[in-house]
């Protein structure tokens, strides 16, 4: 299934855990330190450096771009470290996140409430994922280096729907052999 951003609320609600999809459009990288800062700004009532409305966040801290390249290797990081912040971001307009590994029940509840989807990128496939990135620009917290927020234009980013808006979790399908 080919998804084009931005996704409508209906499109998000139609996604099902386990769907193999590709994503094309604008996403924002944000990981541990950027999440802490964004939530601190929300709490302080400060304007955010980019609009969260409909945003898809990518839990990723890329390698530096070599000469002539748009970005370095850029696979996902473990999502559960963002669990403390994710519900706040969904409440402030975010539509989804891309990461790897399980997410907490509070995050799933926020996704159900506000209409968010959790997408899985393949951990350790950083070179493959970098090929899908057509442009990258730091839009916030440049001093955080790899953890700065980058606006990425991606084409056909290969993903799997991890948790859908009904709360269905693809990881729950793994069964003892």
């Amino acid at each position: 299934m080919e998804l084009k951003l931005p996704l409508t609320k209906e499109e998000i609600r139609s996604l099902r855990a386990g769907d193999v999809v590709t994503l094309t459009g604008t996403i924002y990288t944000a990981r541990d330190a950027a999440h802490k800062r964004l939530c601190g700004m929300i709490e302080a009532g400060e304007p955010l450096p980019f609009s969260l409305e409909g945003a898809i966040l990518y839990y990723c801290g890329p390698c530096p771009a070599p000469e002539g390249a748009v970005i370095g290797s850029c696979g996902p990081t473990t999502s559960s470290r963002m669990d403390a912040y994710a519900p706040i971001l969904y409440a402030h307009g975010a539509s989804g996140a891309i990461g790897k590994g399980r997410i907490g029940t509070d995050v799933k509840a926020a996704m159900r409430k506000f209409g968010g989807v959790y997408l899985l990128a393949t951990g350790g496939a950083g070179a493959l994922l970098a090929k899908c990135v057509k442009s990258a620009e730091v839009v916030a917290f440049p001093e955080l280096g790899a953890e700065a927020v980058r606006r990425l234009e991606v084409v056909d980013l290969p993903l799997i729907v991890g948790v859908d808006t009904t709360g269905e979790d693809v990881y729950d399908r793994a069964r003892p052999l």
């Binding site: 390698c63 390249a69 370095g72 290797s73 990081t77 951990g123 350790g124 496939a125 950083g126 070179a127």
Partner: peptide, 16 residues
């Protein structure tokens, strides 16, 4: 596929 791309481009196979 990722390993092949890494070898060709010299981008690390994983960003970590």
């Amino acid at each position: 596929e990722n390993a092949k791309i890494a070898e060709e481009t010299r981008l690390p196979s994983c960003q970590d």
